[in-house]
């Protein structure tokens, strides 16, 4: 369809590059090494920001899930930030962290942290209480209840939310780099637009989409762990 549209010249070729143009652009980007640099820059930011969100958000969710009063106090706040588009933080991100890796990592963190907390809280609250009674009947200590009941019981739901949130982080990195970046795939797209290189722009779009799918596929592997299958099969 793409080829047909470009051959039919519905739009001028300067704003509607043909597949051949894009393929040429792609080769050019790979040869100069810019594409690889941009991919590495974006992936580094996403993994750092998302990783930080995972290592703080899941414990925060566990903690809030177990303390009803604290949860009642904090939940409205978390819901507020969850509903706030992380892109609204862009001005502050630049003012606080300048241009480069830090503001982007901050924005990705803001995008992933709150949904992860909420998903973990909900998962903890959904654990059937009978599992804790069984744990008591068979003499589990507190540490064992956490590692052998709570964590495995929330794992399926948390993994699902990891997939959703990682997708979100990948969306945000592109937007963040357009404004607060000096490298990365988002910046590459913006740069291509400024240079009127629509072929490079499409090339960037394709790479972003493909990497998004690959990231999701990698996280999908987590759902294949035998001890979490129960969460997806009933």
């Amino acid at each position: 369809m793409w080829t047909a549209l470009s051959l039919a010249k519905v739009f001028p070729s300067s704003v509607f590059p043909s597949p051949v143009d894009v393929a040429k652009g792609f080769v050019e980007e790979v040869r100069t090494g810019r594409l690889l640099d941009d991919i590495v820059a974006s992936l580094f930011r996403v993994t750092t920001g998302f990783g930080l969100a995972v290592f703080t958000g899941i414990p925060a969710g566990l903690w809030l899930g177990q303390h009803t009063r604290t949860r009642t106090a904090f939940l409205p706040l978390i819901n507020f930030f969850r509903s706030l588009s992380p892109l609204a933080w862009i001005p502050f991100a630049i003012l606080w962290f300048g241009i480069g890796d830090l503001p982007t990592i901050f924005l990705i963190y803001m995008a992933s942290f709150f949904p992860l907390v909420l998903a973990t809280v909900a998962a903890v609250a959904n654990i059937p209480s009978v599992y804790f009674r069984v744990a008591g009947d068979y003499g589990f200590g507190n540490a064992e209840i956490l590692t052998r009941v709570t964590l495995p019981a929330i794992a399926p739901q948390v993994i699902t939310s990891l997939r959703v949130t990682a997708g979100l982080a990948w969306l945000v990195v592109v937007a963040a780099e357009m404004i607060a970046g000096r490298a990365g795939l988002g910046f590459a797209i913006w740069d291509a637009r400024n240079g009127l290189r629509m072929d490079l722009l499409v090339c960037g779009m394709i790479v972003i989409g493909v990497i998004g799918i690959v990231l999701d596929r990698i996280l999908l592997q987590l759902t294949k762990i035998p001890s979490v299958r129960w969460g997806y099969e009933r």
Partner: peptide
């Protein structure tokens, strides 16, 4: 030890 009304086997084990 008790056997409960609802499923109480740990589904992850």
């Amino acid at each position: 030890r008790m056997v409960y009304q609802q499923d109480s086997l740990f589904p992850w084990q």
